[in-house]
Design a protein around this nucleic acid. Structure first.
Lengths: 296, 296
DNA sequence: GCGCCTGTAAAGATCCTGTGACCATTTGCC
DNA sequence: GGCAAATGGTCACAGGATCTTTACAGGCGC
């Protein structure tokens, strides 16, 4: 037998999760794709109460529109989608890997649920269902996703002369702001947070833009260029972003070209400043700490 | 061992960590904490059929033991845990953030489900339930986790002075980068990952290029040459890539030829026999080779 | 010794990235 | 609302880096 939940437990949990988002995490944004007015009404009321941004859609929208909404999660009734349901579901899950998808549909067979989950749905709830449970599942989903992908983002990252402050959405060189735009900042944060590792263009793109990169898209390159430009202007003695031909980019501080050596990883472990390694250390195991904190 | 696992997991654990480094997805490992023999039996049968390693626990185990099992996911019936259920669940979720937790319990109230999910459970399924759905949910869970956090999973391969780092797309000799191009890196990663084994040209080609090699294509040879060149420049005292005439290449560290013996395959028939002929076998009917590859 | 296989080198084709200019959209301001 | 600046994103071109092909020389096994 299970043990009943104490009265205040859920309120606390809700407060906590929205407060936990404080500054760093963008507000949770959820879309509901359904036509069941009763369900929508009840759910929206709940969402309103806990202060989640939400939006109701009555019919399937094109993927790029969906992407532009920058949602955290989508709650969808497959019956709204008609015969294209499976295909649409699959495409959404494939092309918007950062979007949490919760199917919330009337009666369904095991085979249908399995199919939906295999296509990439994150959860499948059968109606009738309690809005509180729907919300709890959505929150869990979002919490897990942000735990795993965006964890190292918060602590300020310091590399050489550069300092990336997640709390200000800015990067500084010797205390002076680089005056980065939103995308530029997101990019430098991502790169610096993965210092040493090579990030593939596709990964960078899907993390910053939220959906999969189409072949031939040069956006990442363009923003890398803009970043390099500002970095060079503010910190001419160092190079930060290194190109890995055919793969992507890697972030590492290096003295600016002594000899016009190729730019691909001429940097060696021996050459690397011990200070840098030390500075990097906390970032590597910070995931445990943060995870423990956020789960608190 | 206290808790027997079905597929000889303990021995494999060691193997796996080295094998998993290459490309293979790490094996999914699941534990079931339940006493419902019918449920367990049906579920295990399914798990067996799809080749998932699994292990059944009848009572809660200490967290460190759980951690030592290196599970991908845990399927748990809360009733087994008794009054400590919520606390145990919370601690598991908090302290093992990489472990997927699926609660699978008999009747429950909305409040209980919400509480469980808020404490960190990844999913909550009500019994009776279909094992297929349980598996689909576990798989989805693991898939999502590995998508987001498991990127850095590529463990470095170290052979003698050489170190191949998947996360940097680079190989290092005594800490110094070899400055490899993409294909060169893929090749050395493949070879070093199969250290000691002879890889046929056709296999190398189809793994790197993704399609079958046409007769007369010399690409593999050319890249082997480039690799040898860079390896020799960085690590002149050693030889790494060995030619097997008429077959392919084998990766192994060896001191560079002391006597000016021809550098091509000074070890021939003697060493060749046992493994080689076995390895060569499938080559005769290329159908087999290809089938194996595509299934890989 | 002969035919086949591999090492080596270089030329050409191909693909990838850096770059600057340009347009669309959003944001801030009056 | 209208205007101007800032920002995000696209395009085309030029210069490199990388890959593929080809040719030839030398080694290997029979």
């Amino acid at each position: 037998m299970l043990y009943p939940m104490s009265a205040g437990a859920q309120e606390d949990a809700v407060q906590e999760s929205s407060r936990g988002a404080a500054w760093g995490a963008p507000v949770l944004r959820v879309a509901i794709l359904d036509r069941d007015s009763g369900f929508i009404q009840v759910l929206c009321k709940r969402l309103d109460r806990i202060g989640l941004e939400h939006r109701v859609l009555a019919s399937p929208v094109p993927l790029d529109v969906l992407a532009s909404m920058r949602l955290s999660a989508l709650i969808v009734d497959l019956t709204v989608l008609g015969p294209q349901a499976w295909e649409w579901l699959q495409r959404v899950c494939a092309e918007l890997p950062d979007l949490g998808v919760v199917v919330c549909t009337g009666s369904s067979t095991v085979a249908q649920r399995v199919r939906g989950l295999r296509l990439g749905a994150d959860d499948w709830i059968s109606k009738p269902c309690h809005p509180e449970e729907v919300i709890a599942r959505v929150e869990g989903l979002v919490r897990r996703r942000s735990n795993t992908s965006g964890r190292a983002a918060k602590a300020p990252i310091a590399v050489g002369e550069l300092e990336v402050r997640g709390d200000r959405f800015q990067a500084f060189v010797r205390g002076q702001s680089l005056d980065l735009t939103r995308r530029e900042f997101e990019l430098i944060e991502l790169l610096a947070g993965a210092e040493g590792r090579v990030l593939e263009r596709e990964e960078i793109y899907s993390r910053l833009w939220g959906y999969v990169m189409v072949r031939g898209d040069r956006s990442v390159d363009v923003f890398v260029r803009k970043l390099r430009q500002k970095l060079k202007a503010a910190s001419p003695g160092w190079r930060y972003i290194h190109t890995h031909f055919g793969i992507g980019y890697r972030f590492a501080v290096e003295p600016a070209a002594k000899h016009s050596d190729g730019d691909i990883a001429e940097e060696t472990a021996a050459e690397r400043d011990p200070r840098l390694d030390a500075a990097l250390q906390p970032a590597e195991d910070s995931d445990l700490t943060l995870a423990a904190l956020s789960a608190d």
